[in-house]
Simulated assay, not measured.
Amino acid sequence: MKKLVLFLTIMFMTMSYGQEIKQIPQINVNGEGKVKVTPDQVCISATVETTGSNAKEVKKQNDEKMDAVLKFIKKMNVPTADFRTKQVSLNPIFDYEKKKTTYNANQTVEIVLKDLSKYDELMEGLVQQGINRLDNVTFESSKLAQYQSEARKLAIKDAKLKAEDYVSVLGQKVGKAITISDNSQVYHPQPLYAAMRMKESADAGASNETLAIGEIEITANVSVSFVLE
């Protein structure tokens, strides 16, 4: 009796395992969706940096420059909610050869400028007021989430069209999607705009247009597995 029960159990397990590993005819394809939009805002990360031998004096000078920078930003009518202090530091730097300690103070402000017509004036003014390092300048869209959604839908449509192309010559049809993987990455183009070049233009009183906004290409990439019918 025990042998019979064991035999039936093994048969049931074998049948179950056979059912589990049964393969479903399917096709795996990649799809891509692209949406091109003109940026309507720019995010600027700018830093005031001061170095000297006296920590207190270095911090004081750096604070004074940043105070002038913040007042200038307000004068440009940038809303308070659109700029903030991102980082503040004061660090000792020891020179082992000269056996001397100097101090480095820096403070970073992040600005979201939604009126791109003010870009050149703002950038030149920041340098004039004491900004000596631009860490990042990124052109963005305020409707990024909306455009990402559009790109994802286009990517799924592209994947299905590819699958239909492949199976059309086989006399089969594309069925339901059984797996979807999102492989998307968002890329923001950045301008080559050196701080020193801005300072030279500002000192010379130049009013040349330096901004070429271009377009942001928002891309979505997906991998989809469809059942074949």
Rank of each mutant, 00 (worst) to 15 (best):
V169Q: 11
I21E: 10
K60E: 06
V69Q: 01
G31S: 08
E110L: 01
S89E: 04
Q128D: 03
N91Q: 14
V69W: 01
E164N: 04
P79G: 14
D40W: 00
T138E: 09
E124H: 15
E150P: 02
P25C: 12
D67N: 01
A204S: 13
M13N: 08
E110M: 07
N54H: 04
D158H: 03
F139Q: 00
K3P: 06
Q148S: 12
A194W: 08
S53P: 02
A163R: 04
T219I: 14
S149L: 12
A46H: 04
E217Y: 10
G18A: 11
V169Y: 09
E164R: 02
E140D: 08
Q146W: 10
L116N: 04
A202Q: 15
E200M: 11
K3G: 07
V58H: 02
Y193P: 05
E229C: 05
K176V: 10
L4G: 04
Q129L: 06
K74C: 08
E121I: 10
S89N: 15
D115Q: 10
N221A: 12
N106K: 11
P191G: 07
A46L: 02
T219W: 07
L144A: 00
E140M: 14
K153L: 10
N208A: 13
K114E: 05
F12T: 13
N77K: 13
S184C: 07
Q128K: 12
I213S: 07
M1Y: 15
Y166W: 13
K153Q: 11
V58F: 07
K99D: 11
L134H: 03
T80S: 14
L6K: 15
D40S: 05
I44Y: 00
E64A: 14
D182H: 11
N77S: 13
M11D: 02
T38F: 08
L8C: 15
V169G: 02
F83L: 08
V109D: 00
K56E: 14
S225I: 15
D135C: 02
A81P: 04
A177K: 11
N106L: 04
K59Y: 04
T9K: 10
V29G: 12
D182R: 12
K157E: 15
S141Q: 06
V186E: 12
N30F: 15
Q148V: 14
D120L: 08
E110K: 02
V109C: 00
G18C: 09
M15K: 13
L211V: 10
V174H: 09
K22N: 13
L144C: 02
L134N: 01
